[in-house]
Design a protein around this nucleic acid. Structure first.
Length: 280
DNA sequence: TGCCAGGCCAAAT
DNA sequence: ATTTGGCATGGC
């Protein structure tokens, strides 16, 4: 489809494109005119929103609906949302934010590059890796996220030159494991969450937090709760008891239930945007 | 300048 | 079983 062709229109009852693309799930969305361009694997997708109308690249409507998770039952998720003041404020300010369905390798790899990095810098690393190792995509400024094979051919120094620091060794080792077909990320989708998390944690550079990001963002485990520094501060303020990150994760699962991952994403984005925490 | 960032890991207790 | 220190880099 030519990008100059008239976009297709999709009616969306409950959706916020900007917050969905800028809430630290993906790190490559490029502002383009009134909308954004993203790559879904190797497919360039232009998306813009005007109130309840979404305009997407003609011919890619169903790809867009799937990637943007327009089928997620937000009304049910909101009906089960916690009722404390901070959570209500997060819901009000983030309403319409959706958890994307990300390509699995891209999600795993980008979150291996994420520890002790700010969102803006993860984006910078991600764009560097695409430019340096990824396949160019016709009619797109962006290159595809490098495949495991493309990264497996790099050296640790190549990756350090993209700003990865100590994460270079982990990303390289994981890329080589996946490229060897010793593990099939697609096949893992059938595994139960606990077993899948344990398997993800076997990759170098993947601990519980990164594994939970991958579970939530690439394996549709909407109850998975990544506990980073922001979420830890928020949950500590809510719980008011000295707790490890694992205890906070369990607390979140008990308290927020089957959509705890969704709640977590709203709390994370709201806290970051407003630089605020729950009152204690 | 000094502090912090969507942590992980191995060593020490 | 739980805590601690080291690890690279860039933005504010």
């Amino acid at each position: 489809m030519s990008p100059s062709q008239k976009p297709a229109e999709i009616f969306v009852p409950e959706f916020d494109l900007r917050q969905t693309l800028e809430s630290g799930q993906i790190f490559h969305a490029m502002p383009t005119g009134p909308g954004w361009q993203v790559l879904v694997d190797r497919t360039p997708l232009y998306v813009e929103q005007q109130d309840r109308v979404l305009r997407v690249t003609a011919g890619h409507e169903s790809l867009a609906q799937n990637y943007l998770s327009l089928d997620h039952p937000l009304e049910s998720i909101y009906a089960a949302f916690p009722s404390d003041p901070f959570s209500r404020a997060a819901l009000q300010s983030c309403r319409g934010l959706r958890i994307l369905r990300q390509p699995r390798w891209e999600c795993l790899a980008t979150f291996i590059t994420s520890p002790m990095k700010q969102v803006a810098h993860i984006r910078q690393i991600s764009l560097h890796l695409r430019e340096r190792f990824g396949t160019p995509v016709e009619s797109s400024l962006l290159h595809a996220y490098p495949t495991p094979e493309q990264l497996a051919g790099a050296t640790e120094q190549d990756l350090r030159n993209c700003g990865l620091g100590f994460r270079a060794k982990s990303l390289l080792a994981t890329a080589r494991t996946v490229a060897s077909q010793e593990v099939d990320l697609a096949a893992l989708a059938q595994w139960p969450t606990g077993k899948l998390r344990d398997r993800l944690c076997e990759f170098p550079g993947v601990g519980r937090k990164v594994a939970n990001c991958v579970l939530l963002f690439a394996y549709e485990r909407l109850d998975a709760v990544p506990v980073d520094v922001w979420i830890a501060r928020i949950l500590l303020a809510m719980r008011r008891r000295k707790s490890s990150h694992l205890e906070l994760e369990r607390y979140s699962n008990r308290r927020f239930g089957a959509y705890a991952g969704y709640v977590q994403q709203y709390l994370f984005h709201h806290a970051r945007m407003t630089k605020s925490l729950p009152a204690t």
